[in-house]
Design a protein around this nucleic acid. Structure first.
Lengths: 195, 195
DNA sequence: AACTGACCAAAATAATAATCCGGTCATTTC
DNA sequence: GAAATGACCGGATTATTATTTTGGTCAGTT
């Protein structure tokens, strides 16, 4: 009963859109282009999605889903919270950097500042913070770390991680992977105070 | 002997430039404008400064100097390092936010991304980090805080402080002054680890 | 009923004209 | 004759206009 008597147009559109957004960015993909790639009349797209924005959001949801899978796969129940956290940050950041769609959108924001592209990437960041926040809460409840606001803590963790991995602004030497891990543990978990 | 038989043209130029840059931004000030404000022929400016860039750098040096004075005045030898640090961060950030030149340049970078304006603000940030780094090193030598790389630590401190004070990106609620201080102490000095 | 693509207005881009501005230097001032 | 000036230059920027593109619609086809 799963015969495709008719080609699945919704899937065709989604896949075409995904390819187009990651190749040409948000601004660079046109609805005509997507229709052509999907081998579908342009009007057909509008039977599934109200507009370009909605189509884009659907694709971004997919990226966030992928990141969640990567993060879940990285977690190891036997490891302490700090190790899991650092592994997840590393893996997710790495995956995001390498993912064609995210990379293209970053470049688009840098180069021409497309608002939709910025918004999309913000949603990804927000999803990452939400994901971390859930695990922070869990660790906090289990007494693995000190009590804290999960949301704010997750936000600070991501900011600290990004500050350490950031290069480009020549404010500090680019750090090696080991240095990043060590520094992250130092600043995020241990703190500067004498104990 | 300190009579001003001739008007001090260098000073006139500097003051005019300072007023112009803080009113119109880097791009918005023209050399003609500065000459007129300084009541000086345009060519005269070029006897003191090789070009517009150099004139701008002179003015930025002045801003950095002002910030250093504010920071030094904020320090209180009797207070522990953490308190001094937080006071300095608060005062300097506040002063910078209110300073017309810095405010204008920030807006210019946001709105049109003038490279020179960005560069100038980066120099300010670098100066702040350098200043903090010196005090971190001192505190570290005195054993007030754990041993650490002063440069990297100062960088991380500023980033953490800015992350906490940042609003606009709606990634977390804007925090009150007390919450900022408390959170900064928590994340920067105490750390998440159970002790 | 599902699908299509010619069509439209608005927005983006390209082409062109007009203006501005950093920097120079021959001339003037003292 | 050293210091100061401002008219002047060409490259860059901006304003103006013409042209093309594009998101979205809908009358017509399958």
């Amino acid at each position: 009963m799963a015969e495709r008597k008719q080609p699945d147009r919704r899937r065709q559109v989604m896949e075409a859109a995904a390819r187009s957004f990651e190749t040409f960015g948000y601004k660079g993909t046109t609805m005509d282009q997507v229709a052509k790639l999907a081998q579908v009349g342009k009007g057909t797209i509008y039977t599934f999605y109200a507009n370009k924005e909605e189509l884009f959001e659907e694709i971004m949801k997919g990226l966030i889903q992928e990141l969640k899978v990567v993060a879940d796969e990285t977690q190891d129940g036997k490891l302490p919270f700090a190790d899991n956290l650092m592994n997840v940050l590393h893996k997710v950041s790495d995956y995001r950097d390498r993912h064609a769609l995210a990379a293209k959108l970053s470049q688009e924001v840098r180069d021409i500042g497309t608002p939709m592209a910025k918004e999309g990437l913000e949603k990804v960041e927000k999803a990452i913070i939400g994901y971390i926040a859930r695990h922070v809460k869990e660790a906090s409840d289990k007494g693995e770390i000190r009590p804290c606001s999960p949301e704010l803590t997750a936000y600070m963790m991501l900011k600290m991680y990004l500050a350490l991995t950031a290069e480009g602004h020549h404010l500090h030497e680019p750090l090696g992977k080991e240095e990043i891990l060590e520094s992250f543990r130092f600043y995020c978990f241990e703190g500067l105070a004498i104990r």
